[in-house]
């Protein structure tokens, strides 16, 4: 049975349409990723699901309850970690946890089994003020606080934004580890590479869901051959030249290389090399590659604009 059901959900802030009639379902024990850039509507969606803001239109059901009317039940059974660090900076690690334990009517001891893997990493800093923790530590503490009452559904709003790469990796391991405790997790992130760590993802942009699928299917859904290219003259000049190329479909920088698609379906490697050599490029390196989530996302985003 689906834990979260959303149908035709819309939300406006004055003139701005934050969510434009979206629909999806989240299954029990799933890690469901909301992937998209800033302003895609991820935070708004999470806040509607956890009853903090009201939708303008559409049906929402979380654990079978309506966030509008039965918000007390929902608030009792969810864990929520907002996008901004929202614990008390002038309280120590332990005091923060104790406070959140009491307001949920529990104790650190009772929840220790669930949070111990995370808590052990921050326990050495028990007496340090939360404000003096590093970004990664703060997020771990916030996650502990969100888990302290054994929630059935956990909402994580951009938990890895502003966190160093090592901590990001650790954090995702923690999220993965929560699986065994029967917790359904909805997590938002602007980082495309994190999509692969979810069970299913919804790609969001400008208040719409562009696609919902497993990360693997999303990555493989690219319907064109994709080429990675580089040349000695550098990406800037290369992009400029390719944009003038009549067969171009799309080109965008991706890491150190450019990702390129062509209007023709056949293998265009040779044709491209010849064209670029004629334009005076040297050391041209072209290879056909498998697409990833980001390629798909950019392609979907471009289609959405048209």
């Amino acid at each position: 049975m689906a834990v979260i059901k959303v149908n035709n959900l819309s939300k406006n802030y004055g003139e701005v349409e934050a969510l434009k009639g979206i629909a999806f379902e989240v299954e029990q024990n799933e890690i469901f990723g909301l992937i998209g850039p800033d302003g895609a509507g991820k935070s708004t969606l999470i806040r509607i699901l956890n009853s903090l803001i009201l939708a303008d239109k559409g049906e929402v059901s979380v654990m079978g309850k309506d966030p509008n009317k039965q918000y007390q039940y929902i608030r009792n059974n969810i864990g929520y970690m907002p996008g901004r660090f929202s614990l008390y900076e002038d309280l120590s690690v332990k005091e923060n946890l104790e406070f959140f334990a009491t307001i949920f009517g529990t104790t650190i001891k009772k929840s220790y089994n669930l949070i111990k893997d995370i808590y052990q990493q921050i326990e050495p800093f028990n007496d340090r003020k939360a404000g003096a923790l590093s970004g990664g530590m703060k997020q771990k503490l916030a996650l502990c606080a969100a888990l302290i009452h054994y929630p059935k559904v956990l909402f994580l709003d951009e938990p890895t934004t502003g966190v160093d790469p090592v901590s990001r990796k650790e954090f995702w391991q923690i999220i993965k580890g929560l699986h065994q405790h029967n917790i359904t997790i909805v997590v938002s992130t602007p980082y495309m590479d994190e999509a692969d760590l979810c069970d299913r993802v919804a790609l969001m942009n400008e208040g719409e869901i562009l696609r919902i699928d497993t990360p693997k299917n999303v990555a493989n859904s690219f319907d064109k051959p994709l080429y990675a290219l580089e040349a000695k003259e550098g990406n800037y000049k290369l992009i400029k030249t390719l944009r003038a190329y009549p067969f171009l479909e799309s080109v965008f920088p991706f890491g150190e290389k450019l990702h390129y698609t062509d209007q023709r379906d056949l293998d265009v490697t040779q044709a491209l090399i010849e064209h670029l050599e004629a334009e005076g490029f040297n050391d041209i390196n072209i290879s056909k590659i498998a697409s990833n989530t980001e390629d798909v996302f950019i392609r979907l985003m471009n289609n959405q604009k048209q």
Binding site: N76, Y80, P82, S86, L87, Y88, A145
Partner: peptide, 13 residues
Amino acid sequence: ETGTMEVLLASPM
């Protein structure tokens, strides 16, 4: 302002 109200509101209090 600090956003802690958001967490308090999301709690069953």
